[in-house]
Amino acid sequence: MADRLVHIVDDVAELDGVDELTLVLVLDGFLDAGNAAARAAQHLSDLDDGGSVVATFDVDQFHDYRARRPAMSFVQDHYEAYDAPRLAVRLLHDTGGTPYLLLNGPEPDNRWEAFCRAVREVVERFGVTRTVAMGSVPMAVPHTRPIALTSHANDPSLITGESPWRGELRIPSSAQSLLEIRLGEWGHAALGFVAHIPHYLAQLDFPQASASLLEQVEIGGRLTIDLSGLLAEAEDRAVEIARYLEANAELGEVVAALERQYDAFERAEESGSNLLAPDQPLPSGEELGQQFEQFLAGLEGPDDDKSGS
């Protein structure tokens, strides 16, 4: 089954004799608020000029073209430049020359179990010792506070930070999260990080979160990554957002309410008291929706030269 779903390059001499090999995983589509994980994956690829492809998946087996229609160009009287979806594994190198793999592309819409088996073949063919995933979700948090992350793994010894969650949460599944479970069942280490993105920035690029994710990948994947480009993008975005908030006092008040709630939660965590912090209520969903629609419209307006960054 896996042979028909993934094609693996037979001879990758550079990986012969490598004792430890990290596979970085980013599946676009679901866990990517603020485009944080996809931008982080693109940054890794750009640092090594795209690297070299060592495995490709049969996207036709996984992709729902009617649900996520690829773009193409219509030029005057004909079609051209079809942007075909591609799910591939690339061989890259960190800043110290250490080789690692990057599996990136659209999240499979179907056949998740078959996809997991195909990834297992890649892991076992190349001798991957750990898989590190990245993702991001929208949360009611302010952009002016440190980015929180949820770390997870199929082996408790791989967890790099304390979880902000208590008890059990029922959440929508993803191919990426299922893969972590299956790899654990097959005896392969897998871990990952999910960045908490301010929900008013979920539709915009938020490079600060991309940099935070890659900082964790450095630790969990034992890699060294040049983050200077992403950090420069993050500074530009922070200035852009601050400028807009200064000109929109009402929206600034909503963000200030999120800041008060965040700070109250932090104080409650430190003291072990009520984590709901009832003395610092959040703005209503209607207030947030109205204000952040204006926020997005302002950042994506014609006067904003960096809205596509």
Rank of each mutant, 00 (worst) to 15 (best):
H93F: 03
D10C: 11
S177W: 02
V89N: 05
L178M: 05
A148S: 04
V89S: 00
D94S: 11
L227V: 04
A234F: 07
L5T: 14
A175G: 08
E124M: 13
G17S: 07
Q176G: 03
P281G: 13
N154Y: 07
T131N: 01
R66C: 04
D303H: 15
R222E: 12
L276T: 11
S157V: 12
P198T: 00
T160N: 13
R117G: 14
P85M: 14
R267D: 03
R117K: 10
S212E: 08
D279M: 12
G50H: 05
P302C: 03
A118T: 06
D303R: 15
A55M: 13
D58H: 14
S212I: 04
E14Y: 13
E287Y: 07
A2T: 10
S273A: 15
F295D: 07
V53T: 11
E113P: 00
I147T: 14
G221V: 13
L204F: 02
V59E: 13
D83E: 15
V12T: 02
N248K: 08
S284R: 12
L275A: 06
H43D: 03
G135K: 04
R145E: 14
E286K: 08
Y65L: 03
D48Y: 07
W165Q: 11
L201T: 05
P142L: 00
V26T: 03
T131V: 15
S157Y: 10
L258H: 03
G105A: 14
A2S: 15
L230C: 03
R125N: 01
L92S: 10
R4T: 10
L213W: 01
V75F: 01
T144G: 08
H152C: 07
W186G: 05
S271L: 08
L91M: 14
T224K: 06
G135A: 12
N110D: 01
S284P: 04
Q42T: 09
E259S: 02
A195C: 05
P142R: 12
D304A: 15
A202F: 10
H188E: 14
D303P: 10
D58I: 01
G289S: 14
R260W: 01
A37F: 06
E240T: 14
A153F: 15
S177G: 09
S136D: 04
E162V: 15
E113R: 10
S273R: 15
S151M: 01
G220Q: 13
D109M: 07
A37H: 02
R90K: 10
T224D: 03
D236Q: 09
G221L: 10
V217M: 06
